[in-house]
């Protein structure tokens, strides 16, 4: 069943044969470089290059990718607008001070900060999508276990992962049944139906948990969730490509930060 989760796409992506360590290094490295960048150039470069990697190498449907990026970017536009209006600095283009101690303005400094924040969101979200669309959770569990994350936390994460799919099927069924019986026809009706939906799923979850305990007891559970700890090996070619990308991006970041290129900070 399709739940609209990126996980379903990640399981079948074109970079499935690349080690999760390499993909995580690229994604997390890109996020760090986005945050370190003092100009919009590096985040934009990261957004374009990781976007291309997701579309051409991981072979993700371009419509899906644009659709996925549209929602956070719309929210980013609204949030950046707030940042632009409250912050200041530099030449003032427009200002409004309705009461003492509160002012909204459009200045050169606030616009350039807004541009930087928007480019960082674009770059950061692209890096996040790169990880989400190319690295299935099952591979992340292996990485978590090898990185010595506390076993209780890894087990909890695996249980949550497993339960999400079971619960989401149940919620889909109850929701369709409620919609067919006009359960969301008025605001009052909608709140009552939604409460019933959440209550029914909570009880269903509880029963799922109890069934799971019984099933695990029958299979001699001893506190460690067994899994096949195999992931794609690290190939020199993949490592070199990832290293080259991160090096090139770092060089661009240094060049823009020190002002050796025209788009550096003033």
């Amino acid at each position: 069943m399709d739940h609209g989760f990126l996980e379903n796409v990640a399981q079948e992506n074109g970079l499935a044969g690349v080690s999760p360590y390499v993909k995580l290094a690229v994604g997390l490295g890109a996020i760090l470089l986005v945050l370190l960048s003092p100009t919009w150039v590096t985040p934009l470069f990261i957004a374009v290059s990781l976007g291309m990697a997701v579309l051409l190498l991981a072979r993700i449907d371009p419509h899906l990718y644009v659709h996925l990026l549209a929602a956070p970017l719309l929210f980013a536009v609204l949030s950046v607008a707030a940042v632009v209006l409250v912050t200041g600095g530099g030449q003032v283009f427009w200002a409004w001070q309705p009461v003492f101690g509160f002012a909204l303005s459009l200045t050169a400094g606030s616009i350039s900060q807004g541009l930087l924040v928007f480019s960082r969101v674009l770059g950061g979200m692209s890096a996040l999508f790169f990880i989400a669309l190319t690295t299935p959770m099952t591979e992340l569990f292996i990485v978590m276990r090898r990185c010595r994350v506390p076993p209780g936390l890894v087990n909890l994460t695996m249980f949550v992962y497993r339960s999400i799919f079971i619960l989401s099927d149940q919620v889909d069924q109850v929701l369709s049944a409620q919609r067919m019986r006009l359960g969301y026809s008025s605001a009052r009706e909608a709140v009552a139906s939604f409460g019933n939906l959440c209550g029914a799923s909570f009880i269903a979850s509880w029963e799922c948990g109890e069934d799971l305990i019984r099933a695990m007891d029958a299979r001699c559970y001893e506190g460690r969730f067994a899994m096949l700890e195999e992931s794609a090996p690290v190939h020199a070619r993949h490592l070199a490509t990832a290293g080259l990308f991160l090096l090139a991006t770092s060089a661009l970041l240094l060049a823009t930060a020190t002002g050796s290129v025209p788009w550096g900070p003033a």
Binding site: F159, V160, S163, S168, A187, A190, L197, L212, M216
Partner: peptide
């Protein structure tokens, strides 16, 4: 553990559901 796991899934599902658009 399973109960906590289920609770996590419940919070996840709840926060991925949109509330009635009042």
């Amino acid at each position: 553990l399973p109960l906590l796991g289920i609770t996590g899934a419940f919070i996840f599902i709840l926060s991925s559901l949109k509330l009635p658009s009042v």
